[in-house]
Design a protein around this nucleic acid. Structure first.
Lengths: 407, 407
DNA sequence: ATACTTTTCTAAAAAAATTAAAAACATATT
DNA sequence: AATATGTTTTTAATTTTTTTAGAAAAGTAT
């Protein structure tokens, strides 16, 4: 790639993540000198990508001119999948939805048609939005399973014979496609826009059906050798003989997943536990709703609901204690769909840390609840696209003349 | 620092780690162009630091000239401490001992005189070697405890009022001093010269009195936010109610440390277990020897000894299973003093992984035994000094005129 | 043996980083 | 209140570094 283009793309990328930055800030971030950065900013302004947005307050000397991306220069398609439901949105350079968030059912298990359905839906939404493809930086997809983001492969779901899922969707949509594990994208969102912003070492717990983990180590999203790092759900922590979905027993997930929480609540009610919760509110058919009902009851002070949630929180805390011993993070952030229960969980997790952590380690670790919450995964998917924006593959144009599916 | 000096130091550093490298290799490693690297190599040769060591075999084109460090241009003082015994050696640029390894007792617990004794001994050994201080790149020290390598602080041992232990020793010895946790230095040794060489993600288990861990993540030694990462010994894994030295119960260490292994062997014999081991061979006064005796017996096929070791190995394996789930490394290396039992432990660890790991994760992880073995910590201490060689503090000269202890 | 490829090495041209100086602002002093 | 001093950003001139192109020294295939 031409070098000037690379530098310009880096600047665009950092303006996306930083929103408003001075020339000095940018020079720092792209590791280039100020004169060169000035030159590139000039070109970007000529091209209409970037605008001056006035002066920032002085910090003791001359006030710096601030630069921002223009509103409508580029968009990202964000996709957040779980095993049953998929969400799609188109975000602008301020992470604002320019379309409504599209929500539709797309079961991933035993569904050979899933990749085709996904590609079709993405195309449909792009077409409907009326945004030309050359204004779309790419498609970012968060999905469950064993995902190798670099290779673009999902080893668990979305099988596409002969191609990786990234290649398949890219071929159909004719845009660059980037994928990663859902929990890792949530961590990326927290790193770039959330509670882990500017932190060098932070762990993001994704409380959902399972308990996911995304790790920020030395300022970077950590993926491990094959891209499988963060399998927190399945660390062998209990001797409870409960069989886990992974085939082993005693996994953390067997005591902490939302489904277990609902099951425990349901069983408790059957055994005559006193609670404002009603059995029909805990239907296994609508786990999302069932969980929300438990959280609502707990936040209203329902003792049984608090008890059930605390138990799960305490067990997550035992797992977090292990993480802290191993990785010595500065913060642990509770995020993902279950983070609505975050406030309730903070106490029992802290309790577990007090019991199971060497004090020197736990006192230096802040336990925080995400503010991104439900939207974290979509934000993370957009961030993934922009992370890769400076890479060769990120150029929409090269896809225009490619066949439907290419290698 | 002058820029040329920086580049030259980088080249020296990489020649230390790489032993023999071509100009193109070096250009790659120091991230500078070939013409500039050529120029710097020329200067280093003029100064007598570097020599050409003939041509390497061709890989399809013109043969590259290889460069090496001259033998006697520089040395490193390596110190490897445990809670009772300290080893000191002076190594040359090929990691060869130029003095015998000095071994002396230096208890760290309740010994306010330890820092002074250490400094004195280091000075004594340097003086005896006859090597001038300006030929010594620095002192590297591996020590147990909570060590922040960047700040040069040991929070557990070697208290020196008002100064960090690094500052204290540096002031007394008048050489730059670098410290780190013993397990992390072993990992560094394995990364630079051992079984983890050229690996990007590897975990190094230091089997000693406790079970230490050094992590290589994305090609770098990982230290965590406060420098306390790798507290593998104290992850809460058992519900055994055994009190650990750290004050908690159920730590991994309570089932796997060498002392526990010896105790179990001793108790077994008392209860009439059949073995070639004799009780007097397991004296708690000489744990090092006692452990070696168990290993010897096991390698001769003694069933009881194998059983005892396997049990510990299996429990370590349970911990390793957690590590693999979280960090997805490409290799796990058994190193440190207990690595003489490495071969015996490989089987039970693998067994634990088969039981407790998701297959996709464990099949991609190689379990290897160190070849550096007993010397790993000393090698790591030297590597630590040379890692920092390009940094400003690494210049011996600035220490010459400083007072005994400085800030 | 000769043509072609590959890699290293060297010299001239282009690019980028430093350095120095100027401009714009904040704070302290007279 | 006016002036001096210290910061920080911006611009211009100089130096450093990289890129590019080509020569030299090998290996490989015809």
């Amino acid at each position: 790639m031409e070098k000037n283009l690379l530098y310009k793309r880096r600047i665009v990328k950092h303006l996306y993540f930083g929103n408003m930055l001075s020339c000095a800030d940018l020079s720092d971030k792209i590791h280039k000198s100020i004169p060169l950065t000035t030159k590139m900013l000039g070109k970007l302004m000529e091209e209409g990508m970037v605008t001056e947005t006035g002066y920032a307050a002085s910090t003791g000397g001359r006030r710096p001119v601030m630069y921002s991306l223009k509103q409508d220069i580029m968009y990202v398609v964000s996709v957040a999948m779980d095993q049953l439901v998929t969400q799609i949105a188109i975000l602008d350079m301020q992470n604002r939805n320019v379309t409504d968030i599209e929500l539709f059912e797309l079961p991933l298990t035993k569904n050979p048609n899933a990749p085709a359905a996904l590609a079709e839906k993405i195309n449909e939404i792009i077409t409907r939005s009326g945004i030309p493809k050359n204004k779309i930086a790419g498609v970012g997809i968060g999905m469950p399973g064993f995902v190798n983001s670099v290779k673009g492969i999902n080893y668990t779901f979305l099988e596409t014979d002969g191609y990786t899922i990234s290649q398949y969707i890219a071929g159909k949509v004719k845009l660059p496609v980037f994928i990663d594990n859902d929990s890792r994208l949530i961590a990326l969102a927290e790193l770039k826009f959330g509670a882990a912003r500017n932190k060098k070492n932070a762990l993001v717990i994704n409380v959902g059906w399972g308990v996911g983990l995304g790790m920020i180590l030395e300022g970077e999203l950590f993926r491990g050798h094959d891209g499988f790092a963060g399998e927190f759900s399945h660390i062998p922590l209990f001797l409870n003989n409960k069989l886990c979905s992974c085939g082993k027993s005693g996994c953390l997930e067997t005591e902490t997943s939302l489904l277990i929480v609902i099951e425990k609540a349901s069983n408790g009610l059957k055994n005559g536990k006193l609670s404002m919760l009603k059995e029909k509110e805990l239907s296994a058919d609508h786990p999302e709703k069932a969980f929300q009902n438990i959280v609502t009851a707990a936040s209203k002070g329902d003792k049984f609901a608090v008890e059930i949630l605390s138990e799960a929180g305490y067990n997550i805390g035992r797992g977090v204690a292990i993480l802290i011993h191993l990785l010595n993070p500065e913060a642990v952030i509770l995020s993902g769909r279950g983070s609505s229960a975050g406030k309730i969980w903070q106490a029992p997790i802290q309790q577990a840390l007090n019991e199971h952590c060497i004090p020197r380690l736990s006192v230096n670790t802040e336990i925080a609840v995400s503010v991104l919450g439900y939207n974290a995964e979509l934000t993370g998917a957009a961030a993934l696209v922009m992370e890769n924006y400076e890479r060769e593959e990120a150029r929409p144009l090269i896809y225009e003349n490619k066949p439907d599916v290419f290698i």
